[in-house]
Design a protein around this nucleic acid. Structure first.
Ligand SMILES: [Mn+2]
Ligand SMILES: [Mn+2]
Ligand SMILES: [Zn+2]
Ligand SMILES: [Zn+2]
Lengths: 157, 157
DNA sequence: GGGGTAATGGGAACTGTTCGCAACAACGTG
DNA sequence: CACGTTGTTGCGAACAGTTCCCATTACCCC
């Protein structure tokens, strides 16, 4: 491995996205670049405010509204999507990671669910109503295994 | 039919609920009564603001915050629930009408889905993650039959 | 009818997000 | 490597939906 070898594919992909931004008539801004680096970094389901804080550790003057505007733009380009996991702020992640969400109403934990999990519901909704579900944008709420165990334990006290 | 016969069971039920409110140490307020009458009236999935307008046609001074407080209280008593059908305000309906929601991201139309529709997903989530879904609080989004037809038509132009 | 207190009107506060605008900075051109 | 165009930014105000606070009201039990 050479000194120039990349630790991950993220930096290369950031440049790819910025190239695409320019193709679309946009500009490769520093705030844009840093935001993209954070989006390609590990950990997903980050809120705009969390992303703002991460970006501000590198460029303190980047304003929250700039984060929102850039997320909006990146979403138009198909690079980013957001999901609503319950009450509270939306969370953003790369559009390449495509999955549904199961979100616990008790503890807020979120599970990424492969889209296949929703096949049964998809078929039922299509058959009954001609309705085509999209389980990616809004989470399905409920109660996670841990919380169910805890609640069952407290009940049988 | 006597002159005193009720047009529907709603008024009787309003009084039943108000009795329950009093049992719980609450009071049978006029704003409370009118709100309940509106909730028992036809049409569901009303937002707090819509309910406020309906109530204000009878009692103009009832404040929106009073509506919210009463809905909150009635929810604690198990009379009312709310659901989130997409972006925008929550919608409230009687807790007796228990169903899930399918909400169209294109036109905003909402379908009331019998809970059985979610059995496939419920089983899959339980099997894969030990997660127990509750499809009543948040709608499952997607695209309704009408919008799908329209979009397919425009595409095949 | 009077007293205790739940509930109200009114408005401010709050969260999450969008908007308007003047100053700035990216980048194609010369 | 100026320079002008124009996309982008920082900033604050505005916005939507909801909750909170507080002095005043009105329910309801005696
Ligand atoms: Mn959304
Ligand atoms: Mn809710
Ligand atoms: Zn949980
Ligand atoms: Zn539709």
């Amino acid at each position: 491995m050479s000194v120039e070898s990349r630790q991950s594919s993220a930096p290369a992909r950031v440049d790819e996205v910025l190239a695409r931004v320019r193709e679309a008539g946009g500009r490769a801004t520093t705030s844009r670049r840093i935001l993209l680096e954070r989006l390609f970094a590990e950990g997903s389901h980050k809120t705009a405010e969390e992303l703002a804080h991460e970006v501000q550790r590198i460029a303190p003057d980047v304003h929250l509204s700039t984060i929102y505007r850039n997320l909006e733009e990146l979403e138009r380009l198909g690079v980013v999507t957001h999901a609503h996991l319950g009450h509270g702020p939306a969370t953003y992640h790369l559009a390449t990671e495509t999955h549904g969400h199961l979100s616990c109403e008790s503890c807020g934990a979120t599970l990424e669910a492969p889209l296949g999990l929703f096949d049964g519901l998809a078929e039922a909704a299509r058959a009954a109503f001609g309705f085509e579900i999209d389980p990616r944008h809004f989470a399905v709420l409920g109660h996670c295994a841990a919380c169910r165990a805890r609640e069952a334990g407290a009940e049988a006290d």
